[in-house]
Each structure stands twice: as C-alpha cells, then as structure tokens.
Design a protein around this nucleic acid. Sequence first.
DNA 1: CGAAATTCATTCGCATGCTAATGGTTTCCG
DNA 2: CGGAAACCATTAGCATGCGAATGAATTTCG
Lengths: 155, 155
Amino acid sequence: MVGGGDLNETGDPLEEFDPSAYRLEDQAGFILRQASQRHAAIFAEGIGDGLTPTRFAALAKLFELGALSQNELGRQTAMDGATIKGVVDRLRARALVRTRPDPSDGRRHLVELTRKGREIAARAIPAAALITEKTLEPLSARERETFLELLRRLG
Amino acid sequence: MVGGGDLNETGDPLEEFDPSAYRLEDQAGFILRQASQRHAAIFAEGIGDGLTPTRFAALAKLFELGALSQNELGRQTAMDGATIKGVVDRLRARALVRTRPDPSDGRRHLVELTRKGREIAARAIPAAALITEKTLEPLSARERETFLELLRRLG
DNA sequence: CGAAATTCATTCGCATGCTAATGGTTTCCG
DNA sequence: CGGAAACCATTAGCATGCGAATGAATTTCG
C-alpha cells in the first residue's frame, strides 16, 4: 500500500505518507510521459508529409474503413469531438480529406480520403510500422509482447 | 485494392509491407496515447488544488531539491525550456513559486517554492502516490514491476 | 586575453487535448 | 404522435508540448 511499515495513531494512509519517500522518476505517469516524448520524436523523424500522430491515425482509419462521420472517426482514433475536429480541419486544409453531409443523417458530416490522402496514407502506413519497430527497439521480441499486453490493460 | 495478393517470399518487411495488415490498435504509440489519456483523467480527478501533471512535477522537484534554475527544473521534470517557462509562469501566477536572479550567474533565474507552494506540494505528493496506485490498478504487483521496468527502457 | 562555443531565458508558431456550453437533428419510447 | 433523451458538430477557453530563432551571459580553449 502507500505508507511504510511504521505505526501511527490515526491509521490514515494519507497522513502517514512520507513525502521524502516519493520519487517522481518512479511514477507511472512520469515515465509514461517520457516514453511518449521519445515515441513522438521517433514519429516526427520517420513519418514525413507533415503528418503528426493524430493526423496519421485519422488517415489510417479512413484508409482502413472508408468514409466515417467525424465523431465516429474520433472514436476510432481515441479523440474527443473537439480534438478530432481540429485534426480534420487541418487535414482538409491540406486536401488529404474532404467532408460532405451524410445523406441519411442531417447531423453528420462524412469524412473521406481524397486521392492525395489515399496516396499519402499508403506511404505513411509502412513508415508507421517502422516507427513502432524503432520505438520498441530497446525491448526483445518477447518483452515487446509483454509490454504491449500490459500497456493495453492500462489504456 | 491495395495490398494485392502477392506473397512475401523474402521476409523483408521494408519492401513488401502490406498496408492492410496494419492495425492502428496494435501500435505502441497509439496504445501509449490511450494509456496516457487514462492516467491524465485519473490524475485530474485525484490531485486537487488546480494542479496538472507538469505543474505537480515541478512542485515535487522543487520540494525535493530546493531552489533550481528554470532550465534545471525543466531537465529534472523532462520539459524543454519553452514548456517549463509556461509552467513556472502559471505557478507564479498562483503564488506557489517565486523567482529571483541567481547571484552567481546572470543568465539564470532561480525558482523556489513559496510557503503556500510548500504546503500544497506536501499535500499533493501523497495524492500523487495514490494516483500512481490507481493508474496501475489493472496490473498485479508483479506485473507492475515488469511494466515499469520495460516502460523505463523506452523513456 | 579574447574569440568561439555553450548555456539560459524568452518568444513565436503550430498542434494536441480536455471541459463545458450551444444549437440542430435524430432516435427512443410512453 | 410527440416530448424526452441521445447524438452530432461547433465554439471558446485553458494548458501542454515542441522546434526554431533571438539576445544576453558565461564557459571553454587556443
């Protein structure tokens, strides 16, 4: 649990916790942030075409699934409505996607790849596979399996 | 269609990669982002005092190490100069830290906790320990060890 | 000593990422 | 049918987070 083995009068773990025993470097969130930073750097270096992790995720999902409503695309890529909107706007500004109203649902805007978007996605997906490879490079094949399985359970 | 039906005879993943075999959900970066999102939500819910992960990291390091120059604080908390500046500015606006020129180096601005900052840090550190606990809750004690060790190697 | 290299803080631009609020549309169900 | 509930897209505001550029101060080294 949280506190050490020492006794106290209240039994409240918050009050017996010794702040000097806390090491930022050992906290899951802190290490997670550093691993994300390293991955982001590898990604930026390897992907090309002005893509970012979220922009790429959107392209990859549209490539796989075809036209999707904006919110559905957000769900597929783990982004909320406010975030996916900005991503789609920027992809549209680069003419990698276009949007059109969903004829069967007046609330929805369908998002789909343009020809250029499809070409870039087809090129970026193999690059992204290499980026995953490079990110996991410090681990053995067996460790990668273990790591991804544990990470998935936290996600 | 994209991948075609050709088989991969050489086993060279670089030249024969089939985009349709790519699964975004299995990529380290994508899962990492989701785990970070979950941790951020747990953090926001548990920390209080208007703290954020980066703000808390800065407080915790100042609490541990005393006055530091801004850049040094950034290194201790894995933030670059541009990022730590914004964090320090916002902590200063809330009177949790103050800055003063380093008498021995005219380039540096020393950052240190105020009394209020020290109080809030002392309260936040035990809360952060519980947040780490909750983040890792889906894993057994043994799995946590493994996970953190592998994650550290990627950071 | 003094020029070059480094360090430090700052600023700008761009891109995430979240919450909350809003208004329009569709679906659900009594 | 018709109102409540749910869903969709958008906007505003706040906070990260990074690269690149700038100018001042310090350190390094020939």
